[in-house]
């Protein structure tokens, strides 16, 4: 039908959903990476505690963003019930909520034996009273016995959260920028890249141990590959949008005409850290400053990606 079209971006899900997606991906990927490191590379109490802590705290903060914006908060109980997956298996928010809950549960359990061995939690009154209770001691023993099973349950749910953040946006068919298979991939790769950056930041500052050098080197290498992958995904997304529908072309114009996206995200969030880490991996740096800089930039870029994605989705209305 011959009609005039109206093109519009939305103001329904804005920066707070960007934070939800960002913290969700970052927290979940951090937890998954630290647990895998602990299970297969080197048992590492500090890393696991940081991973589980980041997973729980970031996911809680991110979820509060969504919860705080619900119109009717008590109705959220329906989605917190695991049986929702039988009633609404097609809704990604239902899966995402369950992934988040179970990632937290298995994450805390996996970290429990380590927490009991650590000095700091014993200084926190509430935790101190809890971790020496007989039932907690029994659970910790059980977790130690089924160490890998619990670890994998946390990792699977963590990866589920990271992938979900992209699948959620992909499920909105009217917006070409979101409704394409590059989005879950891009968000997953970005989640793991920001997790690597976060862990490198930690391992060069708060848990800086020379004996962990091989872990740092591995993380740097993985991050390098992830950033390269992200650049390839962005390039293919660009090509897809360039010759796509009007919704796609307009999203492309919004993004690639914006300095925050081009210079902020692609330049400083991807290309600069890629070059810094490339030199670190190939020739090495004499100081830790460049890798710390790269990590901070990757973390900032991860948020910018999600922020701009939310604001640049274009709806095409036929009126």
């Amino acid at each position: 039908m011959e009609v005039n079209m109206t093109y519009a971006t939305q103001d329904i899900w804005t920066w707070w959903i960007a934070i939800y997606l960002y913290f969700g991906g970052l927290g979940a990927a951090t937890l998954a990476v630290t647990f895998l490191t602990d299970m297969y590379l080197k048992p590492h109490r500090h890393l696991v505690i940081w991973g589980a802590g980041a997973g729980v705290v970031l996911l809680a903060l991110g979820s509060m963003m969504l919860f705080g914006h619900l119109l009717d908060k008590p109705a959220v109980l329906a989605v917190l019930n695991p049986l929702i997956l039988f009633r609404k298996p097609d809704a990604w928010i239902a899966w995402g909520t369950q992934f988040i809950i179970w990632m937290m549960v298995w994450g805390v359990l996996y970290a429990l034996p380590y927490v009991r061995e650590t000095e700091f939690p014993r200084k926190v009154p509430l935790i101190k009273g809890l971790i020496d209770r007989p039932f907690v001691v029994t659970i910790a023993k059980l977790v130690q016995r089924f160490h890998r099973t619990v670890g994998w349950l946390a990792v699977i749910n963590g990866v589920g959260v990271a992938v979900y953040t992209g699948l959620l946006l992909q499920s909105f068919p009217a917006v070409a920028l979101w409704h394409n298979p590059a989005v879950p991939l891009l968000f997953t790769v970005s989640a793991f890249s920001t997790a690597m950056a976060f862990l490198l930041l930690l391992m060069y500052t708060l848990i800086n141990d020379q004996a962990d050098e091989h872990i740092r080197v591995l993380y740097e290498r993985i991050d390098l590959v992830l950033i390269a992958g992200e650049l390839v995904l962005l390039f293919s997304l660009y090509q897809y949008l360039k010759n796509g529908s009007e919704s796609a072309v307009r999203s492309l114009q919004l993004l690639w005409n914006d300095y925050g996206w081009v210079i902020g995200f692609i330049g400083f969030g991807l290309i600069v850290p890629f070059l810094l880490e490339l030199k670190g991996v190939t020739r090495g740096w004499s100081t830790r400053v460049p890798i710390l800089t790269a990590s901070v930039l990757v973390l900032g870029g991860g948020y910018l990606l999600r922020h701009y994605f939310m604001y640049a989705g274009v709806y095409a209305y036929p009126w």
């Binding site: 914006h69 619900l70 959220v76």
Partner: peptide, 12 residues
């Protein structure tokens, strides 16, 4: 309905 507004995002 809990008012997450996902439906509003999905509706073309």
């Amino acid at each position: 309905c809990m008012g997450c507004r996902a439906c509003a995002m999905a509706c073309p």
